[in-house]
Design a protein around this nucleic acid. Sequence first.
DNA 1: GGCAGTCAAGTACGC
DNA 2: GCGTACTTGACTGCC
Length: 302
Amino acid sequence: MRIGYPCLNRSIGCSPSKTFRLASYTDERLEDTVSANLSCLKKILIYNAEHGLLFLRITSDIVPFASHEVCSFPWQVRFSAAFAELGNYCRKNGFRISMHPDQFVLLNAPDERVLARSIADLAYQTAVLDLMGLDRTAKVQIHVGGVYGDKAAAMDRFVKNYRALAPEIRARLVIENDERLYSAADCLALHTKTKIPIILDTFHHSLNNNGEPVNELFSAIRETWNRRDGIPMVDYSSQQGGKRTGAHAETLDPENFSLFLSESRDFDFDLMLEIKDKEKSALQALALAWGDKRLVTVAMPD
DNA sequence: GGCAGTCAAGTACGC
DNA sequence: GCGTACTTGACTGCC
């Protein structure tokens, strides 16, 4: 088990998600922004190595507008050496890496223009991981998509569109259960037709489930990841008190987290903490998990 | 410098 | 029909 957090680090004084308005796009602006974002990403990786946080989700904004038609800059060529260096650092430190396109990426969209934009974005995120030279344990995670008034048809469309993807995208793509439309059971049904690995989001599962016993679910999910995909990834969060159901917690709930560790003790996975205070919660989680036989560590964290 | 409004993108849901 | 929410954070114009 490696423990990590998504996208941003609030302690180090830079953001890897710098962007700009579409209206102010220029090649120069893009080049400067990506350069700054990659330099910040390097700082995050160094921080993570120093603190024993070995799982990181790279922000989709690392190359702003990368999959947009406005983007005419050959960023893959310009930054190939920088991406390779970041990837080397990840491998050297035993990091697990993921990316998570946002809610606009819909592989089962009936509208072909939406589908085309979605595939372009998947190609971009796949290219980032490929440029970093990461093996296929580095994943791009998406939700199944919309229902469009006919769930069976929407799932069939997912299968069809998934099968038509380029092999390099399929090698990285994984699906995650969401809190309203597609449960873990729905994802497992899609797995039987596509062999796509499944990321379990435990918080979403608590809001949208079919009453599965935890052990059965972890067992089934584990079987969707083959050796080349690495051990499963799991997203963890908990409910923020006083906010709408489904709102992610601002800070780690130690009691809830310890219970989660205990309930999942028979299963190994890499764990992403989707808590709003980011690395702070991840460090707390690492401390709470300390001594857990699953934990991968490089050194005792500070 | 600080603030408020707005920002590429899609869908579903509650009012 | 419209506003809101989503992993939300970051940019921009105005004071």
